[in-house]
Amino acid sequence: MIQLSDITIDNKELFDKYFSMKQYEISDFTFTNLFMWRNSYNIKYAIINDFLCIFAQYKNNNPFTLMPVGTGDITPVIEELITYFDSQGNKLIIKSLTNDMISEIESRLPGKFIFKPERSLYDYVYLSEDLIYLEGKKFHAKRNHINKFLSTYDYTYHPLTAELVDECIAAEEEWCQKRNCDESEGLEQEKAAIIDALNHFERLKFKGGIIKVNNKVVAFTFGEQFAKDMAVIHVEKADPDIQGSYAMINQKFCEKEWSNVKYINREEDMGIEGLRKAKLSYRPVRMIEKSIAVLKE
């Protein structure tokens, strides 16, 4: 029987070892994401035949796994997952599958699963130079936002350090007050996840940036490099009352931290209309399609 284990900060080295074997370009396969959302999504893990298997369940929805990560034949691993899920009264569901993952599963277990695209989980990928330089007509509105910010505020940009964590947490709490997070379970979970990640900043080893106006944090962000030529931005928050602050923190963070990589992954939109509009407005060069696999009857 598979024994599931809770994710703790001490697991980072283990997870990073497995993720380095494949270097998938989707945001799901970063330890930071799994750690900060482990409570909201009841994320656990097991090692099966030297494959890292990640299990999750959001509220009372059906439990699922991500693609097992490892090298060698994945067939016995998936077969063991099928048996385990069946013993729990569930059909095996595998989420966040890229097209390459689907091809691997189909080659090993042909006709065993039904695959369905999940548009709300597609990752948005951008050229770092687009986000840094914002050149051309397509970024005219973004440049206007930044110019408005620059003409209105005296600001300073700082790399995130341990000494600045408490100020970022205060900025997140103020953002939540303005957005009435206490009325939204999703925003409350996001707040908890962000604070958890910030409190473990040094051990998670991600990079971050902040913008201060009048010596107060009005925007912060953090992310990490997780593939050969790609960084991922996990979180970006800015004071909604400071016009242009979102555009400014995005541009500055990419300029200061990610000019050395070609691509920046800004994760999914979760089907939220406003978030989808905002992410499309930065003109992604491609979307990483993700699908769900459901075991056939």
Rank of each mutant, 00 (worst) to 15 (best):
K59N: 04
F113E: 01
K178S: 01
C181K: 00
G186A: 09
E255F: 14
Y41E: 09
A231T: 03
I169W: 10
V125T: 00
D28I: 10
N250H: 08
G208D: 00
I264L: 06
L81I: 00
E236N: 11
I249R: 06
L280N: 13
V69F: 07
P284H: 04
L131C: 06
N260A: 07
K148Y: 15
D166P: 13
I132V: 02
N250G: 13
I292L: 15
T98S: 11
F220Q: 09
D50E: 00
A193M: 09
D86W: 13
A227V: 07
L280M: 13
L121I: 02
E268T: 03
F139P: 02
S245Y: 09
R266F: 01
T98Y: 04
Q3I: 05
F113N: 02
D16C: 12
I211K: 05
Y246F: 11
F19H: 02
S87E: 12
E268R: 09
F226P: 04
K91L: 00
D166S: 11
S20K: 15
G223E: 05
K22N: 09
M1G: 03
L204W: 12
T65P: 04
L198H: 13
Q57A: 02
H234Y: 09
D86V: 01
L81N: 02
Y282E: 05
S107R: 10
V125S: 10
I169A: 07
P240D: 04
Y24N: 08
D182R: 15
E267F: 06
E224G: 01
I94H: 04
T75N: 09
L109S: 04
L97K: 00
K17C: 02
P68I: 06
M1T: 13
N180K: 13
I94A: 00
E173T: 15
Q251R: 13
F201P: 00
R143S: 06
N62T: 03
I9E: 10
E135L: 05
V125H: 12
H158G: 03
F29G: 03
R38W: 08
N33G: 13
E236V: 06
